[in-house]
Design a protein around this nucleic acid. Sequence first.
RNA 1: GGGCCUGUAGCUCAGGUGGUUAGAGCGCACGCCUGAUAAGCGUGAGGUCACUAGUUCAACUCUAGUCAGGCCCA
Length: 1048
Amino acid sequence: MRAFKELTERISYPAVEQEILAYWKEHRIFEQSITSREGKPGFTFYEGPPTANGRPGIHHVMSRTLKDLACRYQTMRGKQVHRKAGWDTHGLPVEIEVEKELGFKHKEDIVRYGVAEFNKKCRESVWKYKADWERMTEQMGYWVDLTRPYVTFENEYIESIWWSLKRFHDEGMIYKGHKIQPYCPRCETPLSSHEVSLGYQDVKDQSVYVRMRLKDEPDTSFLVWTTTPWTLISNVALAVAADVTYVKVEQNGEKLILAEPRLSVLEGEYTVLEKFPGSALVGREYHRIYNFHPVTAKAFYVVTATFVTTEDGTGIVHMAPAYGEDDNQVGKKYGLPTIHPVNRSGAFGPDVPPFAGKFVRDADMDIIRELKERKVLYKKEAITHSYPHCWRCRTPLLYYARESWYISTTKYAEKMIALNKTINWYPPEVGEGRFGNWLEENKDWALSRDRFWGTPLPIWVCPSCKKQKCVGSVAELREGTGLAEPLDLHKPFVDAVTFTCTCGGTMTRTPELIDVWFDSGAMSFAQWHYPFENKELIESGEQYPADFICEGVDQTRGWFYSLHAIGTFLFGKPAYKNLLVNDLILDKDGQKMSKSKGNTVNPFDVMAKYGADATRWYLVTNSPPWRPTMFDEEGVLEVQRKFFGTLVNTYAFFAMYANIDKVDWKAAAVPVAERQEIDRWILSELQSLIGRYTGYMAVYDVTKAARSISEFTIDQLSNWYVRRNRRRFWKSEMGADKRAAYQTLYECLDTVVKLMAPFAPFLADEIYRNLNSVTGLDPAASVHLSFMPDADASRIDAALEERMERAQKIVVLVRAMRMKANLKVRQPLRRIILPIADEAGRGDVRRMQDIILDEINVKEIEYVHDASGIVRKKAKANFKAIGPKFGKSVQQVAARIKDMTGAEIATMEQNGSVQLASGEQTWTVAVDDVEIMREDIQGWLVETDGGLMVALDTTLDDALVAEGAARELVNRIQNMRKDAGFEITDRIAIVYAADAALAERLATQERYIVTETLAESWTAGSPAGEHTETLELNGGSISIAITRMKRG
RNA sequence: GGGCCUGUAGCUCAGGUGGUUAGAGCGCACGCCUGAUAAGCGUGAGGUCACUAGUUCAACUCUAGUCAGGCCCA
C-alpha cells in the first residue's frame, strides 16, 4: 500500500513548485486541461498583449494571477478555456528602443538609415525581454498558450486589421481632418488622446504676467497670464468671462485691468479705480506685443469665452488658435487669424528671427528676458502643474493644428454607450463612471501616426482625382504593382505598391501608420486571422465576445476602449462580457513604484524567496484587485506562515496518522449521519464554505473567495476540528469512529485544495496529488483536471453550526475568566454554571458538553434556572424593535427599560409583555422589545457575551490541586525528557524528593504521572544524575531525577 | 476645473437595508499549550469610524459640503 508523502512545515515552497512545474510539463497537464474539456461549453478569455521589450514587473504578476485564476476556475467548473498568448509588437516603444540603440536623435536619422533596415531592427528588438516574460509566466504558474501566440506584426494579423479598416472605410467612417492635436516634437507624431493620458506629469514651468496695452487708453494695460510664453508670439485675441467682475487698478503710475477675484496676483499696493463686468470689455482693442506676422483678418481685441475661470491667472486669457483646442474654437467662432511659426520638430521658423531654430520651450526663457527688457513683463512665477508628456520619450507635448486620419467613432458612440451597459464591470463604478463618462464625451479616434514601425494605413490615394482605395486583404494588394516578395506588409514594401486609378492616375499609399491601440483592439478577431480563417470561431460566438478580460485600470481608455470601439462597429456586440479591473501596485509605504525611486519589486526575487503561490495568494487577498495594493514582502511571508503553514501542517498531521493506521480507502464511507457531531459540524461548515466561495467567484470577488478559504482552514479546520480530535487519531483500534474521522478530515483537505487550486495552483496540486495518488478517490492526474465541488445544501446544518459557535463562545468566556483568576488551563476546575432557562437551550449545550469540558479542563457543567434567583438580570432596549413602535418617545422608553426591576423582567418573561409606567405615561413592552442581559451571579466570577453568560467555580479542593500539580509535574518531566534528548518511546525511571505536603498530594496522582511520562518507577529518594531539576510546585519544592531505562 | 475611488486600532484591511458593546490579522503586553512541537493558541491594551452641517426618535452607516490621498481626464 502506498503511503502519503509526509510533508513538513519546513517545506521549501519554491522547490516544490519546481517539481510541480516539471510534472505539469511532463504530463502536459495544461494541454490536458483544455483537451479534457472538448465538447464542453467554452469560456472565452482574451489576453491583453504585453510588449516584450520591457521587463515584466510585479504588477504583471498581479494581473496575470487574476487572469489565470479565473481561467483555472472555469476549467475546474468543466468549461473549456482556450488561452492564446499575444504580443504587442508595433509602435513607438519599439522604435524608441531601436533609436536609442542606434544613437538617433531625430526622425530624419531613420530615413537616412533606411526604413527597411530600421524596421528589421524593430522586428528583432520587440523580443528583447521575451525570455524574461516567458520565464515569469511559467514560474508564476500562468497557464497561457505561449507556443501559438498572436503577434501583431505578422502578415496574417495585419491582414485582419486591414480587413477591418476597409469595413470602416467602406462605410465612410474614416476621414482626413484637421484638429488641434497633442503632438510629440521629438517623435514628430501626433498622439491619440489615450496615449496622451498615459503621460501626464507634474512639471515646473515659468508662467508670466504680461501687459497688453489698450489702444484707446494710454497707460492702461490688460494683465494677461500664460504658462506657455512661446505662444505669445502667436497671440491674436484675449478672452474674458462675461459675468465676472473686472477691475481697473492704478499701481505705480500705470493702470491695469484684471478680474476682481484675481487681485491677489498684484505685487504691492494698488488702488481700485473702476469695476465692471467682463462683458463691458468685449471688443476693446490692444497693441499686439509681437509683430512678426502680418494679419489680414480683424484681431487683437477682447472676446468672451466660457472656459475663462478665476481659479488662476488674471481672468484674462490669451488666445493662440494654432496651439490650443479652446483657442482654436474661439478662433473659428470669431474668424480670428492663425499664426503658426513652429515647424515639425517644435522649433521656431525663420519668420521669427530672434528665436529661429530654437525649440519653443527652450525659447521661453529668451522670450521672458526680452519681454522684461521691453517692460511688457509684469512678473513671472514658477508654477507646478500637470502637463502631458509623450508616454514613451517623456518629451513635453505641444498642441498643434495638424492633418490626420480619423475614425468617426462619434457616429456610433450611442451604440457603444448602450452596449457598455450590458458589460459586467468589476468594480461597476469603473464601467459606469470612468469608462461610461469617457464614452459620453467620445471624440473621433485619431487613427494615423507619422512613424515607421507599425501597421500601415492601407489607403491609396490618387493624386489627380483624390479618389481613395482601401485595401482589405493581401489578395487585393496583389492586384497592384510593385509588391516585393517575400511578403511583408510593413513600410517600405507596401509603399512600393501602386494602383491605377479609374481616372488613369497612379494611386500611392498615404504614408501614415495606424495607432497601435487599434492593433491590440483588433485582437478579438485578428488573433484568429478572421475572416480569412476561422470564420466559424467568431461568427458562432465561440470566440467573440470574450467572457472575461482583465487588465489594469490604465487600460480603460486604452485596450478596453479600443476593443469596445472596434468590436461595436464590426460586430454590433460588445467585445467582452465581464471585465475585472486591477489597480496599481504601490510599495509598502503607498508610493508609486518607479525605477528612479528604486522601490520596484522584482517578481523573480519574490518568487524565488517565497514561491509563486504565496506571492499570488498575497496579491489577491491583501486588498481587492481594483483597489491600489501596497506590496509588502512581510505580507507574503505571513501568507506562507499562517495559511500555507497551517494547511501543510494539517495535511502532515493527517498523512502521519493515516500512514501509521494504514487506512483502507476502499472501505465504504461511514454515513455522515452516523459520524460524530463534530464531524458533521466541520462537513457542514465545509459545504457553507463552498457556497460562499462559489457566490464570490461568480461575481469575481476573488479576494473574499480566497479569504474565506483561509479563514475556514485556519480557524475551523485546524484550530478547532483537528485540535479537538487529535485523540481520535491516536487511538489505536481502527473502528467506525476512527474511520469517520479520517474520512471527514480527508474530505475537508481534498475540498480545500480544490477551492484554492485556482489561486495557489502549485501547493494545491501537491496536496491533491499526495492525497489522491494514495486513495485513488479522485482519479484526475492533477487538481487542475478535477472538478470544482458544488455546495450541497442538504449537508448544511445551520443549527449545528450555531451550536458549535455557542460552544466556542463558552470556551472563550471561560478562558477569559481563568486569565483573570490567574488559573492556568492545566489546573482542573470543578464546574461552570450556565444559566439557561429552556430545556432546548440546555440540550444544545449538552450535545457539545464533552468538547467544552475537555477544552477548558473543567469537570462539569451545572445548569441553573433563571428563576432560581441567583442570576441577576438586566434589560436593555432593542432599538430595532421599539424604534418603529414608540417613535419619538423611544429614548424615554429605553431609559425605563434600563431601569426594569427583576420582578418586572420576570413578569414580562412569564406573560410575554409588561406594563411599564414612568411619570404620566405607561407603555406596553413585549419580550421582543427587550434584550435580557444576565449581569451577575451573586458571589461568582462571571463573563458574558451578548445573551450568553458563564460563571466559573474557582474553588479548589485538595483533589483538584493535586491533579493540577500532577499535570504541571508531567509537563516538566516531559520537557526534561525532551531536553535530555530521549525518544518519545523511551521508558524512564523517576527519583524524587519533595516537601511532605507536596509528596502526599502527588501520591494520589502517581498512576497518572507514571503513565503520561512512560515511567517504570516513581521512587522517593535522593535525586541525582545528569538529568536533575528542582522546581516549585503549589508552594512546595520538589527535586526530580530522570534516567533512561535500558532498552530490551 | 471635471469624473471615479479612498479616508475605521500603531500598520494592513473587514463591516454595516441607520438601532446604542465597530471586527480580524500583524505589531505590542501578558500568559497558555505541548504525542501537528524551531509550529500553535489565548487574554488584554489600543478606535470621538477624516471634519462640518443636515435628515431622523436614532448617523460610523444616508444627504450635502469641507479637508486629505490616489487614479483618470482637462
